[in-house]
Simulated assay, not measured.
Amino acid sequence: MVNISKTKRNFIGLHTLFAILSAAIGAVILHFALPGHYFGGYPFIPVYFYLFGLFSIYMFDACRLHAPQRMLLLYLAIKMVKMILSIILVLIYCLAVREEAKAFLLTFISFYLIYLIFETWFFFSFEVNRKLKKKNKKKNETVA
């Protein structure tokens, strides 16, 4: 059996569900609400954000095990890397496929913001739960 933490398993499960739902909803919106705006590069966007999310959770898990005091620094570094890599990818795509540039850019920015909110919510709730558990553990130790 592969050793995987509960938090990592929860994030991967929620992240996978979120990726499937956001990709499907995005495709439906582009096909029906904005007919004619679906573009060939659309599937790349949800896949990019899904893979980057998996990379992030593996990095956070490794940091949690080996250098927990650097978790905030890693969080900020990953956000910067994601932003820089996203800008590079958007520029390359928009230069390579000019006729789809506007639709791609607007869709990519929408996914970027949606994933930013999702990941922030997940890690914020994770930190709140971690602090509550730590507080309860200290409380139980002083009672015993």
Rank of each mutant, 00 (worst) to 15 (best):
K79T: 10
K79M: 13
M80F: 08
M80S: 07
M80D: 02
M80P: 02
V81T: 02
V81P: 00
V81D: 00
K82N: 07
K82M: 08
K82R: 09
K82E: 07
M83E: 10
M83H: 06
M83P: 02
M83C: 13
M83Q: 05
M83Y: 11
I84V: 12
I84M: 06
L85C: 14
L85K: 12
S86R: 08
S86W: 05
I87F: 14
I87H: 07
I87C: 14
I87N: 12
I88H: 07
I88L: 13
I88D: 09
I88F: 15
I88Q: 09
L89I: 02
L89K: 01
L89Q: 00
L89H: 00
L89S: 01
L89R: 00
L89Y: 00
L89M: 01
V90N: 10
V90L: 15
V90H: 06
V90S: 11
V90G: 14
V90I: 15
L91I: 08
L91H: 08
L91E: 11
L91N: 15
L91S: 12
I92M: 06
I92Q: 06
Y93R: 11
Y93C: 07
Y93A: 11
Y93P: 03
Y93I: 12
Y93T: 13
Y93W: 09
Y93V: 12
C94R: 12
C94S: 15
L95R: 11
L95D: 13
L95H: 12
L95P: 11
L95E: 09
L95V: 10
A96H: 15
A96N: 12
V97I: 12
V97Y: 14
V97R: 11
V97C: 03
V97Q: 08
V97S: 07
V97A: 10
V97D: 07
R98N: 08
R98V: 09
R98Y: 07
E99A: 10
E99H: 10
E99V: 08
E99I: 11
E100C: 01
E100S: 04
E100V: 02
E100P: 00
A101V: 14
A101S: 12
A101C: 10
K102D: 13
K102I: 15
K102E: 13
K102R: 15
K102N: 14
A103S: 11
A103M: 08
A103K: 09
F104H: 08
F104Y: 14
F104G: 05
F104R: 10
L105T: 12
L105Y: 09
L105E: 08
L105D: 05
L106P: 01
L106Q: 09
L106A: 06
L106F: 13
L106W: 07
T107C: 06
T107N: 03
T107G: 03
T107S: 11
F108T: 00
F108I: 01
F108W: 09
F108A: 05
F108R: 04
I109S: 03
I109R: 01
I109M: 07
S110L: 12
S110Q: 07
S110T: 14
S110G: 13
S110Y: 13
S110W: 11
S110V: 14
F111H: 06
F111N: 02
F111P: 03
F111C: 02
F111W: 05
F111L: 03
Y112A: 06
Y112C: 01
Y112K: 02
Y112E: 03
Y112Q: 02
L113V: 14
L113N: 03
L113R: 01
L113Y: 00
L113F: 04
L113P: 01
